[in-house]
Design a protein around this nucleic acid. Structure first.
Ligand SMILES: [Mn+2]
Ligand SMILES: [Mn+2]
Ligand SMILES: [Zn+2]
Ligand SMILES: [Zn+2]
Lengths: 138, 138
DNA sequence: TATTACTTTATAACTATTCTAAACTAGTGT
DNA sequence: ACACTAGTTTAGAATAGTTATAAAGTAATA
């Protein structure tokens, strides 16, 4: 099955019509080896380079929002200026490079087991995520 | 020493003139038992209730920003809509209540020791913070 | 092909935040 | 007390990210 067929399947399975704009966007998001962390402006920049016929900013916002709502993207808040999105929708941890503003994933196997000792009666834990801020050593 | 004298000292030690606006704001921020987590609109609301002579929104933004730059406040990103600030400037962890949007602190003693096993050559770790999202059990 | 629901788009609206520049005030020296 | 200066406050304008609107276009379905 081609990449494109896969993306069409992904869209259809979420009741989204596989329009050419959505396929373009999904190629950028999901046709890659590693997790992709991006802001809307990152994504718009990439799309406007690669694609011949430009996709409107409104569509980019719409599509990212709908992909998030269907569970294909996750929103990450690191920084108050711009929202990050993540193609890795699992519960996981991040390095944030303060020099480059880049996010990198790491997983439970890369960190000691986390156990919260504090009691929170009447509440349930939805997620536990670690943010490690890093910077160049030099 | 009165609360007010303390705040004046705090401001002066950061080369900030203890104006009546700043003292009003600092009372709200620092004259309390526990850590205060707030957004600018939270703070503005509180100030406009308590204070007879209103403080302009520009001054509230200015003051929070300058207190942050002097190391008396810390900025926290949880949510892309609004920036949170924290009177607890130490490296620490948070519960975020998804029902109420409230932040609560917890500390190293409330969590198992965190050890990052992943190598990040050429980088130094600036902070390691855990965010636990919680919600009502019901 | 006709019908309908969904999608894209340009653009307006909205909201949090920052900037501007004029009026005001606190500190300092006389 | 008065004058001077640097720092502060303020209203309002500007900016930037994001969301809403509504008209034109397109995909699915019969
Ligand atoms: Mn900020
Ligand atoms: Mn959002
Ligand atoms: Zn990630
Ligand atoms: Zn805190």
């Amino acid at each position: 099955m081609t990449i494109e067929q896969n993306l069409v399947k992904k869209l259809r399975s979420s009741n989204l019509r596989p329009t050419k704009q959505r396929i373009e966007i999904c190629k950028v998001l999901f046709d890659r080896e590693r997790t992709f962390h991006f802001t809307i402006s990152d994504l718009a920049k990439i799309l406007n380079l690669n694609s011949k016929n430009k996709i409107s900013l409104a569509t980019i916002y719409n599509t990212v929002e709908i992909l998030k709502s269907k569970g294909h993207l996750k929103e990450i808040s690191i920084n108050s200026d711009k929202t990050f999105f993540d193609t890795n929708i699992s519960n996981h941890h991040h390095f944030f490079n303060e020099n480059t503003n880049e996010l990198t994933d790491f997983y439970d196997e890369d960190i000691s087991r986390i156990k919260i000792k504090k009691n929170i009666p009447g509440k349930k834990v939805k997620s536990i995520e670690v943010l490690v801020k890093i910077a160049n050593s030099n």
